[in-house]
Each structure stands twice: as C-alpha cells, then as structure tokens.
Design a binder for these strands. Structure first.
Lengths: 138, 138
DNA sequence: TCTTAATGATACCTCTTTTGTATCAATTAC
DNA sequence: GTAATTGATACAAAAGAGGTATCATTAAGA
C-alpha cells in the first residue's frame, strides 16, 4: 500500500530532482512543502527518513535546506519506498510476517501474494526519478 | 492491500472449492471457519458480501449452509477481491479517488500507480480458484 | 407443530495505524 | 547576535481494521 507517507516522500524527491536539474542543490523544506502540497510539519518528519536512507542530504542553519544526495537517474521509486518505511509497499501482512500464521507453510494464497509482490517491487525498481521529471509533469 | 477481510474471503472460497470437488455443494459456515482458521462471526459478515457478489450461495435453516455458486474454474482471485470490498486491492488512495487531489491531472506518480495497479489486477484475474486447489495445498 | 440448526441483518466495540501537530534544541550565514 | 533553518521527540486526532453481540428469519425433521 502506498500510504500518504510514501506518496509525500516520493513527491519530495521529485521536487528536489527538479531543483537539482536547475542547479539548485539545496532547497528549504518549507518551499518543497508549498510546492508539492505537503503539510510542512509532516514533511519534516519524512525528511529524517530520507536522510537516514541516504537519498537526500540536509544542511542546518540559515540558507540551509535539503537536496538530493545523488543524481536522480540513480534513485528509483523503490529506493524511496524502502527509505520511507520498514514495510515498503507490502501487499499483505503475510508477506512480512509469514510466521505469524500457522497456515503459511502450505498456503497457496501466500504463494500468489509473493509473486505479485515481486512484480510490484521489480516495477518500482525500474522507475527512476529522472524518468518522471518530464516537462509538463509535476 | 490484501486485508484480513480479503484474505479470509479467499480462504473461504478455497475451502468451498475443496468441498465442491468432493461433491459437497453445501457446508456450514462454522465448518469453514474451523477449517480455515477464521473467526466465526467475522466470517459470517463476509458471507453476505460473497453472496451479494454472486460468488457463493446460501441456504438457511437446518442442514443449510453455503456453497460455490459456480465451478471453481470460473472464479478468479480478482472476483473475490471485487466482491469483498469496494476498494479492491488498491495500491494507493489516489487510484480510487483521483479527484480528491488537485495534483492528479499532471501527477506522474499517479500514472505509475495506475500502471502497477493494472498489473496487479491482471495477475489476479489470471489466477483461478481451481488452480489453487492442488493436493497438499490448503 | 415444535425444536433445533442454520443464515440474515444490524449495530457496536476496541485496538492499531495513519495522519497531522507542537515544542524546544542545535546549527549556520550574515 | 539574530534570524532562518534542520534535529529530535512527544503528543493528539481521525480513520480503518478486526472482531463481537443480538435478535430475527428460515427450513428440516421428529
């Protein structure tokens, strides 16, 4: 599931990619929040995870802000998903916690869920942030 | 997202498919609940949706119960998902409610979500219940 | 006809997760 | 030194998921 957290994180990275291409390596969180319709304080929480995940860098103090840690062609949607939360875009609780269900060893449903999850993840891995920064997009 | 509701509904249909193949066209909800580790009263709620969705049929009174409405080869996982809830296995709230976000007309993320959603749905449509009732499976 | 076993309908409850807010400390440019 | 910015942490509100309870209705069979 793509939660708001994941969605907002992706928006933020997209925004930073746009600035990155224009040579603006650092932008304030407030600017990104305004630009991408993200609640400012919520976004501030997400910044931490993206920094911890190594996708963005931040600088404190006056004229500080955040910026991509590397070229947008080297960041995929999957990277953002991973950095945002421990559970990713998991299709089913059975994916991350198969042991919590005694049926899992023989469960045909789990098998199918795993196949679908694999497809979703591999698609997310193929989509680079740079691919999404086309003119007219936002 | 595959919620417990969806998961339980799939389990129920799988169980009924097993009985169906053994010639038992009607089984009590209590038996299915016990067999598939589903809380009985919760399952009762799900029965209604599957009946409304035309996947299963029910008979009241003594010796009543539930059973598949058609051959398991004519029921897919997608059918179960659709019958279970209005939102299906939606990847993102943006899929079912794009109008709720003013960004959607130009949103590159929404485009990607839609592509992924389409892949998930088409996979679910290819998996028939009969495919999943192999020996050793449950 | 009476009893029993089953579903139908509806309402409710509780816990977790998601989403969002608030506060204060630390840092940096000028 | 001041103003602008992020860091860290805690809190709160809202929504959703998961589960329970109750009573009505129906049908089989003694």
């Amino acid at each position: 599931m793509i939660t708001r957290e994941t969605d907002y994180s992706m928006r933020m990275v997209l925004s930073l990619a746009g600035h990155y291409k224009r040579g603006e390596k650092t932008v304030s969180s407030a600017d990104v929040a305004g630009e991408m319709d993200i609640p400012y304080r919520f976004l501030r929480k997400l910044v931490k995870r993206l920094v911890d995940g190594g996708l963005i860098e931040s600088r404190r103090g006056k004229n500080g802000g955040v910026g991509l840690a590397r070229d947008p062609s080297l960041i995929t949607l999957f990277d953002v998903v991973q950095a945002t939360g421990p559970r990713g875009v998991e299709m089913s609780p059975c994916i991350s916690e198969p042991k919590s269900c005694k049926r899992s060893p023989l469960c045909q449903l789990l098998r199918e869920f795993q196949v679908i999850q694999g497809r979703v993840d591999s698609h997310l891995k193929r989509v680079r942030i740079s691919d999404m920064c086309k003119p007219g997009a936002r």
